[in-house]
Each structure stands twice: as structure tokens, then as C-alpha cells.
């Protein structure tokens, strides 16, 4: 069939293909932008569902503590081990404490914490909202004069933005403590000197930049979870796909924005 078609027709097909992809891309971008704007605007417009917010604060913050804490403690521990094997080659052991605290507060705390929470919360939100969509619970909300954006999405976004910095602050402390344990009890550092080295090079900005990153990551994780859940396809398969997409897109966006945020904070 195709062989008999004129070059003009083939060219037209080609253009049509590109056009379709382009249109789908624009539609997707527009849909996402609209969703984001709607969600953010509903954060500031009453009525506010405080009970939902409290529930999500507990869900995002409190229940993520074990995961984030474990991630942080092992990260701190392995950082000390790794930098010790490296730094001892040129007798720079005294720098280990500073390296550990800077890596954790600036990068590893927010990024690893963010990725772990993305796996936990992004997936949970996408599955929950996706199931609500599939079983018409979101339509039911709307027939009961309740905006799903206000009731479901806004409290989750706020919870993410508030709780991620809290989690990362805890992760910073636990991470440094993990490093301290390995340094003092395994590598026989002087505890006093190690702590002094930890503090002496640490600046406010190191911690604050990490917390700002965490807030942005919290927004990304919860937004991705809600967006993919809200636009979930039909049936169990649709919810499954939404869950995967939520976690993958949140993780990639975290790594991407992390680079730009670091550039913004420390490039000069």
C-alpha cells in the first residue's frame, strides 16, 4: 500500500505525526499547568479543611520519620567511612567532620530524604486519589458541593511544603549523629574535636538552603502524587500506572530542581 503513495502524501503523514505529538505535548503541559494553578489557588481560598490538613501533616511528617531517619543515619555513617578511606591517604582526617555535615545539610539530607518520601507519599497519594477517581468518589465530592482541589489536593500540598523541611532538619541531625558514631566508636576520633570540626565550618546558609530545597521537594512530591492520581486512567491498571508515574516523575523532578536550586544558592 505505502509504496504506491505519492511523496506528498508521505510528507503529509510525517507532518501529521509531528503535529499530533506536539499537540499532545501542549495539551499535557496545559493540563498540568492548569492543575497546578488550581491547586495552589485553592490553598489560599477559604473554606479550609483543617482536619484534613492535620491528618496529612501526620501522614507526611510523622509516619515518614522512620524511613527518613534510617536513610539519614546510614548515609551519615557511610559518608564517614568513605571519606575516611579517601582522606586518610593525604592525612586530611580533620576535614571529615566538615565534609559530612556539609554534604548532609546541603545535599544528601534533602535529596535522599525527598526521594524516600517521594516513594512513600507520592505513591500513597496517587493510589488513594486515583482510587477515589476510579470509584467516582471525586465526582461524589463535587456533587456534595466540595471542591476536590480544596478538600483533597490543597491540604496535601501544604502538608508536603511544611513537613519536608521538618523531616530534613531531623535527618540532618540524625545523619550527623550517625557520622559521629562511626567516627568516634569505630575510627577512634576524639569526640570533642569531631564535634568542634562539625560546627566550625557550618554556616546558617548551609542548613537553610537544604530546608528551602526540602520545601520545594515537598511541593513537587505531593503535587505529582495528586496530579497523577487525579488524572488516573480507568480501573486497577490505571491506578497502578498513576502510582508509578507519580513516583518516577517526582524523583526525576527532585534531582532536576536540586541542580538548579544548588546553582541558585551557591553559584556566586
Amino acid at each position: 500500500m505505502d509504496a504506491t503513495r505519492s511523496p506528498a502524501a508521505l510528507l503529509l503523514d510525517f507532518c501529521q505525526g509531528i503535529g499530533t505529538v506536539l499537540l499532545q505535548f501542549c495539551q499535557g503541559t496545559g493540563q498540568f499547568a492548569w492543575f497546578t494553578l488550581q491547586s495552589v489557588s485553592h490553598i489560599f481560598r477559604p473554606p479550609f479543611y483543617w482536619r484534613n490538613l492535620v491528618r496529612q501533616l501526620i501522614e507526611v511528617g510523622y509516619y515518614s520519620l522512620p524511613v527518613v531517619g534510617l536513610t539519614a543515619i546510614f548515609t551519615g555513617m557511610v559518608l564517614v567511612l568513605q571519606s575516611y578511606t579517601g582522606f586518610s591517604r593525604f592525612s586530611a582526617e580533620s576535614a571529615i567532620a566538615s565534609v559530612v555535615v556539609l554534604s548532609i545539610t546541603r545535599e544528601l539530607g534533602p535529596v535522599l530524604g525527598g526521594l524516600m518520601v517521594a516513594g512513600r507519599i507520592g505513591a500513597a497519594f496517587a493510589a488513594e486519589i486515583g482510587t477515589m477517581k476510579v470509584t467516582e468518589q471525586i465526582d461524589a465530592l463535587r456533587t456534595l458541593s466540595t471542591s476536590p482541589f480544596k478538600y483533597l489536593v490543597a491540604p496535601r500540598l501544604v502538608a508536603g511544603i511544611i513537613m519536608l523541611p521538618c523531616l530534613v532538619l531531623v535527618a540532618d541531625i540524625i545523619g550527623v549523629f550517625g557520622g559521629y558514631l562511626v567516627a568516634v566508636y569505630r575510627l577512634d576520633f576524639n569526640p570533642h574535636t569531631y564535634l568542634q570540626n562539625t560546627w566550625s565550618f557550618l554556616q546558617n546558609m548551609d542548613v537553610i538552603s537544604g530546608l528551602v530545597k526540602a520545601a520545594v521537594f515537598g511541593f513537587i512530591i505531593t503535587l505529582m502524587g495528586c496530579y497523577h492520581g487525579y488524572n488516573s486512567g480507568k480501573g486497577a491498571e490505571g491506578v497502578g500506572v498513576a502510582t508509578t508515574n507519580a513516583v518516577v516523575s517526582a524523583s526525576i523532578l527532585i534531582l532536576l530542581t536540586n541542580y538548579f536550586l544548588t546553582g541558585l544558592f551557591f553559584a556566586h
Binding site: E136, Q137, D139, A140, L141, R142, L144, S145, T146
Partner: peptide
């Protein structure tokens, strides 16, 4: 608009969904 509809129209409606659509939480 969705907002006006929520305020002015939706309270007139009741809906029984096919699967019930009860909030399971």
C-alpha cells in the same frame, strides 16, 4: 464557573452513584 456552581447549584442536587462512591476513609 466551578466556584459559582458549588455555591449556587450543587446544593439542589443529590446523586446516588452506581458503585455507591462512599468515601472509604
Amino acid at each position: 464557573s466551578a466556584r459559582r456552581r458549588e455555591k449556587e447549584v450543587m446544593h439542589k442536587f443529590g446523586m446516588l452513584f452506581q458503585g455507591g462512591a462512599l468515601f472509604d476513609s
